[in-house]
Design a protein around this nucleic acid. Structure first.
Lengths: 333, 333
DNA sequence: CTGTTAGCGCATTCAC
DNA sequence: GTGAATGCGCTAACAG
């Protein structure tokens, strides 16, 4: 591991001063074209790589943004990351992805890492145990721009990008009743997650409002994909729904194969609608509908929102709240 | 955005020297307990956060590792990331995830970023157009430890973690013929990917070796999930296999729903075996088998491999090649 | 036990 | 056009 070549090395070899080399490398207008050329050639020949830490320290301007998410699951977040990455790179920023593993302590730890690294901004989807946002406030006080997306808390005071959870549930129930479903089952995510409860409340309210007399509904929380399958199986003997609402891809993944088995070839007996990123539904040949919760779009919007407040230098007056639509789509073509 | 408090600020306020503060913060044994306490309290009160860039610059020891992958798809890589994250954090490293988007230029760019940031190590799954590893060599020459995993090239000279692609295909064919399948279809990934060709060659060789007289086989490449579905549909009129091998989750995701539709309720007509991380198969109620290509294990092994060569300071004599087993598993229970 | 000094690599004043 | 000097914030000798 030979010593890495520095600007000083180049300057010595070229018989010019370090500052000249620095300027040449940065294409500064004051430097002659001929010299620039020589500097660049030598830099390439000696495998010179600018030390990002040194230059960032000097400029106290770290061109990296952080993404903090509960977990890189196979659903939704890959799309989100894709959207964010694209947007962020366009603007010359690096992206650092951190996971909280649904653990508040880890989330706080991640925020601390971001502060230590002096990242310029943070995009965060809160983990399920997070109730208060003191740790975010702390980062914000250090001058770091923050955008919360997807998973939030009721009392959030930061810019937010997501969907209207209650309304989405309402739309789903509305669709099910329109199809003539009368026995509705809503399956929701982990009960500690704020969005689980928002979506459940939306579901229950809509049911009470929209179901005809004689119609019934039931809602359950599932801790994960397997649990969703289990709950459905356990419930089946006593309650056979003719309409099911799955609040997420994860729930949907548990429900669909199980439902197929329970239903046998009586496929049309139960309508299914979910909230989905829009990839999973196409893995099932059984027809189903979903409210598209487009991770890619959420990602780009989140990144854009962050980049905006970065440009405003945190001196914006109004609080951006971006709510995406969730159009209803079928998985049949 | 008020100025961030530094060690100097603390030292001034406490009437001690900066180095004393630094030592106190690092729990250096030379510092008195009482002083340590005072320093820590003031640091907390003033929201002092050590500037990671400055300390890393000083120590020229950057505690971050980079993961470079073609794309964060919903299959395999989430598991890999999970495995790597876990291992890496245990050892006090940060992880930076970069995507190449199956683009060699981007891959080279990512390597450059890693060098500029002076990361300690790189874990990389090569993108499909990568043929030569000069860019990796460049990073290695700068003293960065490197491990290649999953997607490699034939002439790779870096430590490697993955599976035996040809052998896996062989096992799959062996299993299919053992089930009595005689008309075999192998569906493979993008033709530029090295593993696509490795797995196809393994498949074809095994077919020629293991199929009874009268048996036939066919292999096709699919550019992506949708293409896999399309190819199967197009092929169906002229070639109805009774055994299908899907080389990856992506292929499997395209094939399964399509096969269900083509097969109608004649489910037992065609056996399916794939190579899979082990999550996707459980989304289908149709029985199928898979050779488990456990992303989580690959991830931990890769990270471990990197941490090892980090400890050896890059001065190891032998080249670690870690080949994981791929046990055959059924999705029925 | 604590302070002084020095420098990591770079970019940016200010001179000339 | 170019060079000399300075300091970003921190740590690690080396003194005392």
């Amino acid at each position: 591991m030979q010593k890495r070549t520095t600007i000083k090395d180049l300057s010595r070899l070229l018989g010019v001063s370090p500052s000249t080399v620095s300027r040449a490398l940065h294409d500064h207008p004051d430097i002659g074209a001929a010299l620039k050329q020589k500097v660049r050639e030598l830099a390439a020949a000696l495998h010179y790589y600018p030390n990002a830490m040194a230059s960032q320290l000097r400029q106290s301007d770290n061109k990296t943004l952080a993404l903090i998410i509960p977990e890189i699951t196979m659903f939704f977040f890959p799309s989100v990351i894709e959207g964010i990455t694209q947007k962020v790179r366009e603007h010359g920023y690096q992206l650092m992805v951190l996971q909280s593993h649904e653990n508040l302590q880890q989330e706080i730890e991640n925020i601390k890492t971001c502060i230590n690294l002096r990242v310029s901004g943070i995009m965060i989807s809160l983990c399920r145990d997070t109730q208060q946002l003191d740790h975010l406030k702390e980062a914000a006080d250090m001058g770091i721009s923050i955008v919360v997306f997807d998973k939030t808390v009721p009392n959030n005071r930061f810019p937010f990008v997501g969907i209207d959870d209650k309304n989405a549930s309402h739309k789903a129930v509305s669709w099910l009743t329109f199809q003539g479903c009368t026995q509705l089952l809503g399956i929701f995510g982990h009960p500690h997650m704020s969005i689980s409860n928002q979506r459940r409340e939306g579901f229950e309210n809509a049911c009470m409002q929209l179901l005809p007399t004689g119609g019934t509904f039931k809602s359950v929380h599932a801790y994960n994909q397997e649990d969703a399958a289990l709950q459905l199986r356990n419930l089946w003997p006593q309650f056979k729904p003719n309409g099911i609402f799955c609040m997420s891809d994860e729930v949907l993944a548990g429900v669909m194969p199980t439902l197929s088995k329970l239903n046998g070839n009586n496929g049309a007996a139960c309508q299914v609608i979910g909230i989905s990123d829009g990839k999973l539904p196409y893995l099932f040949h059984e027809p189903l509908h979903f409210l598209q919760h487009d991770g890619f779009k959420i990602g780009t919007a989140t990144a854009q929102c962050l980049l905006n407040s970065l440009q405003l230098g945190g001196k914006s007056s109004d609080l951006p709240i971006i709510i995406h639509e969730t159009p209803i789509v079928s998985n049949q073509q």
